[in-house]
Amino acid sequence: MRQTWTIRMAKARHALPYAAATAATAAAAWTGARATGPASRWYRSLDRPAWQPPSWAFPVVWTPLYASLAWSAGHALNRTTGRDRTALAAAYGTNLALNAGWTWLFFGLRSPAAGVAGSLLLDADNLHLIRRTARHDPAAAAALAPYAAWCLFATALSTSLARRNP
């Protein structure tokens, strides 16, 4: 009986970082989505580049990217302890805040230029997060590559929008 309880507790301790990372990622996605307005009159009035994906593509792309971000965090946190774990959790939290903040800068402020600034901060933080994660879990760091690449694409798109719509 005691051995079963010990196994259950070990499984729960292993699952907790995944659950926490999933909840934090979902909260960031939800917070960011509250500001998103691709159907708004303001956004539709912008001069957009021909290479911009259709609006339906963004949730299709972001869903697996958020899933990989949550998996990466849970996986890496399971491989750290103490101060390293706390610092890594804070790094993921900062990244999620920057991620959610971008939509508020771009759509909330109706400012492509502010979106560029937010994108650049997120890009820099993505590199920092990948490096920090790689120290503890190379597989989790590799899982962040598509997310970082899409964010770089978003920076290029934001920059194009800011140039076209001063």
Rank of each mutant, 00 (worst) to 15 (best):
L96T: 01
F106L: 13
S55T: 14
A113F: 00
G118A: 15
S119M: 04
G93Q: 02
R83T: 14
L96I: 01
A90G: 10
S72V: 10
G82L: 00
G93D: 04
W102E: 01
A73C: 13
A89E: 01
A70F: 00
G115D: 03
P64G: 13
G74P: 13
R110N: 13
G115F: 01
Y66D: 07
L98P: 04
W56Y: 15
Y92L: 07
G118K: 08
L65I: 08
D84P: 02
G115Q: 05
R110D: 11
L109Y: 02
L65A: 06
T81N: 06
R83I: 11
V116L: 08
A113I: 00
S119Y: 07
A113V: 12
F107S: 02
N99H: 09
G108E: 04
L96M: 07
S119Q: 11
P59L: 13
S55I: 06
F58T: 08
A89L: 02
L96G: 05
L69Y: 03
L77Y: 01
T63C: 13
R110L: 07
G101S: 09
A113Y: 00
A97R: 09
L69Q: 08
L98W: 00
A89F: 01
A73K: 03
T80F: 11
Y66A: 14
A90H: 09
V116M: 09
G93P: 07
N78Y: 13
W71F: 11
Y92D: 10
S119A: 14
N99T: 15
S68P: 00
W102P: 00
V61D: 10
F106N: 05
N99E: 02
W102A: 00
R85N: 14
A97W: 04
A67G: 12
T103I: 00
W104A: 10
T103D: 14
L109A: 12
A73V: 01
A91Y: 12
G74I: 09
G115L: 05
A114P: 01
W56D: 12
P112L: 14
L105H: 05
G108F: 08
A70K: 07
R83L: 15
W102Y: 03
G108N: 05
G108A: 08
A67R: 10
T63S: 13
A89R: 06
P59Q: 09
W56V: 10
T103Y: 15
S55D: 07
T80I: 02
A87W: 11
R85L: 07
Y92H: 10
T86Y: 06
G115R: 09
T86Q: 15
W56C: 03
G108Y: 03
A70H: 02
L65T: 12
Y66F: 15
A97G: 10
A100L: 07
T81Q: 14
L98G: 09
T81I: 11
L88R: 10
G118Q: 06
P59T: 05
H75P: 00
F58H: 04
S111Y: 02
S55Q: 10
N78R: 14
N95L: 11
V61P: 05
V116A: 12
S111K: 04
D84M: 07
L98M: 01
V61A: 13
S68E: 11
G82T: 07
A89W: 06
T94I: 12
N99P: 03
G118M: 03
A90R: 14
L65Y: 15
V60P: 04
L77W: 05
P112T: 08
L65K: 11
S68I: 00
T103V: 00
D84R: 12
